[in-house]
Simulated assay, not measured.
Amino acid sequence: MTRAPRRPAALTAVRIPKRLTTAVLLAGSLVALTGCSDNGPKASPSRPGTSPSASASASPRSTVDPEQAAVLAAYTQSWQAQTEAYAKASSAGTGLRKTTTLQALGLVEQDLETMRKAGQVATGKPVIHPSAPKVTGGDIPKATLTDCVDTSHWTLIDKATKKKVPLPSTRLIRYVSTAQLQKWGTKWMVTELTAQKQTC
């Protein structure tokens, strides 16, 4: 029995029976600048697809202020680090802790452990389509954004055989994701990533 992705931040993981254990991915890449599907509800992305390797502020809209650009940059960097982690089934040396809090990182680490035990890694990169974030002030400034994550070009493979791991045909390849961030000092951190059971 399959389950829709339970989060996004890191990777949107799709759970299937333990024998085929998997963690399939969420991150953004310029590899494929495809838009979200016209089928199903839209996430209403406000920008073209970007990759984790591209700066979130590389092509900001004129309506995006410096604080919003900083949030997008932190979000994109978190995705880049996640993509690197899934490529080797380990967060070591990826810089994930620099952009993602322990609360959000815990879900990613669970996926990575599952992948290591199964001898799996991810190849390719996902594409993200983050909207302009909503930023609120306070003692600890917060931000929320909606994303359309496209995992079409993010593939789970068996590390030993290099063969693609079979995944449920019903899994969401493009899905809506929401992210929560907080500003710690001068730095924005991803505190929560949630994959919605909704295509985009």
Rank of each mutant, 00 (worst) to 15 (best):
Q182Y: 01
K18R: 10
R3T: 08
R3Q: 08
A179L: 13
K187N: 09
Q196R: 03
D158K: 02
S29K: 14
A69T: 09
D139R: 08
Q120T: 02
T146M: 02
S59Q: 10
K117R: 15
S46D: 07
L112R: 11
G119D: 07
P8L: 10
A73T: 15
Q110L: 13
D38K: 07
S131T: 13
A32L: 07
L105C: 10
R97P: 00
T136D: 11
K187V: 06
K183E: 08
A56K: 05
R15P: 03
S169Q: 09
T194A: 08
S78H: 07
Q103H: 11
G28T: 14
T94K: 10
L102P: 05
C200T: 03
R47D: 03
K125Q: 14
P126I: 00
A89G: 05
S59W: 07
R3V: 10
R116E: 01
S29T: 15
V121H: 01
K18M: 09
A104T: 14
K125D: 13
K18P: 05
A13W: 11
R6L: 12
G185C: 05
I16M: 00
S152H: 02
A27K: 01
G40C: 01
V24Q: 08
K197A: 04
A27G: 11
T199D: 10
H129F: 05
S131D: 09
T178E: 13
W188Y: 03
R97D: 04
